[in-house]
């Protein structure tokens, strides 16, 4: 049979199906992006003119026009930094054990199953745990430390799962190369495997922290909703965070506070975008390291 390059019945039908699928995908994408645009647009309309230096540097006030968000920004940064400091080492260590040492033992599989479950637990449950364990039993009170510990619990499953994923992508040829030079298992993990997994670990950490920084429920549960007229100055300080301050303003009856809430949302979004940008920069830098 001779080669024919012209259209025929079967290929035309398949091409139509192809186009149809493309169109559907495009519409779905437009709906998702449209919703986001409307959301950001509305918030921007309400909040943009409240967003000034005074707003960023002032403490809460009974009068909407002199209220600010300084204490919540500092609170959020403080809590998130501590959360990262707790979730990163514990998460990476747990993932390293499960992936490199745990093998296929019954215990490892049991832990694995539970971590997958933990990632799906509603955040308010973590709040209740934090209240019982950190605030009461361990007597941390309603402190930055208790808040960060609670959010670290929330972030841990994501950090563990993404670290395991990152460890798995390290090629076995690198491990073998290291073993063949007389490296112990730990030396191989520490000098070769973990450094190569850094981009993946960082991505997972930032994703987890991005979720944690927007969390409200667990922190309300442990008592961060109280009126805080100062920024935290130690890990034992009482504190509030951006989403809680926003929640607080939204629940006020006066319209002026709603504008404050919108401006607060813009600040939170900016913080999130900055964190994601930092993550991307860090990941790119580590990925390029050692590469041409």
């Amino acid at each position: 049979m001779a080669v024919s390059l012209g259209p025929n019945a079967s290929s035309a039908g398949r091409r139509r199906a192809d186009l149809l699928f493309q169109a559907v995908a495009l519409v779905v994408l437009a709906v998702a992006l449209g919703a986001l645009a409307v959301l950001v647009g509305t918030v921007w309309r309400d909040g943009a003119n409240r967003l000034d230096w005074q707003f960023l540097t002032s403490f809460p006030s009974r009068r909407a026009e002199s209220a600010g968000i300084y204490h919540a920004i500092v609170g959020s940064l403080y809590v998130i930094a501590l959360t990262a400091a707790m979730a990163l080492p514990v998460g990476v260590a747990a993932a390293t054990y499960l992936e490199e040492y745990g093998g296929r033992s019954r215990l490892a599989r049991f832990i694995e199953l539970n971590i997958a479950n933990l990632a799906a637990v509603p955040s308010i449950i973590y709040g209740l745990l934090g209240l019982g364990l950190f605030v009461r039993t361990m007597a941390m009170g309603r402190s930055v430390l208790a808040g960060a510990a609670t959010l670290a619990l929330l972030a841990l499953p994501v950090v563990i799962l993404s670290t395991r994923e990152a460890l798995r992508t390290v090629p076995s040829s690198i491990r073998e190369g290291s073993y063949a030079l007389g490296a112990t298992k730990w030396q191989t993990i520490w000098h070769q495997v973990l450094p190569m997994a850094v981009p993946g670990i960082l991505t997972g950490l930032i994703l987890a922290l991005s979720r944690a920084i927007g969390e409200t429920a667990p922190l309300i549960t442990i008592g961060a909703l109280t009126y805080i007229p100062f920024a935290p100055d130690s890990i034992w300080s009482a504190f509030t965070v951006l989403p809680i301050q926003i929640f607080n303003w939204v629940s006020r009856p006066q319209a002026a506070f709603k504008d404050n809430a919108a401006a607060g949302i813009l600040v939170l979004l900016a913080l999130l975008l900055t964190m994601n940008a930092i993550a991307i920069v860090l990941r790119d830098r580590y990925q390029r390291k050692g590469r041409p």
Binding site: E176, P195, G290
Partner: peptide, 17 residues
């Protein structure tokens, strides 16, 4: 393994200098 060295089929330099 320190005394019995090995070179692999696919070269596997570490991603370092």
């Amino acid at each position: 393994r320190r005394q019995v060295g090995m070179v692999f089929q696919k070269s596997n330099p570490f991603p370092k200098s």
